[in-house]
Amino acid sequence: MIDHFGINCSDWAKSQEFYDKVLGVLGYTRQMDVGVAVGYGSDGHPAFWIGDAPAGNVAGPNREVHIAFAAKDAAAVQAFFHTALALGAEPLHEPRLWPEYHDKYYGAFVRDPDGNNVEAVFHGGGPTG
């Protein structure tokens, strides 16, 4: 059900040190580092992300959470996006390939009623495969 999720951190250096060490003893390592976010996991799949809150201009005590739900195919990603919009969700990113993550990463992002960044992702490519 859950593909990955992320939290924002106010002290970027301290948070990186903390998660590098506490997740390291559990056998997890950095799988991706994109400068303002680090993804931890195993086997090449970052399942837990931390983000640099100040770099992302996140303000206030209620910082958004990011959660990505696994979709069975590209059509499900599209259905998720259009259903969310029909319910009044704010669109963040329409369904598309995200090659900066990997060449078959197909996802769509919306803001839920509480302001969280919610995504549906399929790891098998876009509508044509």
Rank of each mutant, 00 (worst) to 15 (best):
N8S: 05
H45D: 11
F48T: 03
Y40A: 11
W12I: 04
S15Y: 04
C9F: 01
A53S: 12
A68C: 15
S42N: 13
D52C: 11
F5P: 09
P54D: 14
M32H: 06
H45Y: 08
W12R: 00
Q16N: 10
E64P: 05
Q16A: 08
A59T: 15
W12T: 01
S10H: 03
Y40K: 05
N57K: 15
N8W: 06
S15A: 15
I50V: 14
A13I: 13
A59M: 15
D11W: 00
V25T: 12
A47H: 11
P54K: 07
V22H: 00
S15T: 10
G60I: 10
Y19W: 08
A68H: 03
K14L: 12
E64R: 11
C9G: 00
K14M: 12
D11T: 03
Y19V: 05
G41T: 10
C9K: 01
K21Y: 01
C9R: 00
L23F: 09
A55G: 15
V58S: 11
F5E: 03
N62P: 08
D11M: 02
V36I: 15
F48A: 10
G51Q: 08
K14P: 00
V65S: 07
G41P: 06
A68G: 13
W12Q: 00
A68E: 07
S15K: 05
L23V: 06
A13F: 02
G39I: 13
D11S: 04
H66Y: 13
K21V: 02
S15G: 09
V25D: 08
Q31W: 02
G35W: 06
N8H: 11
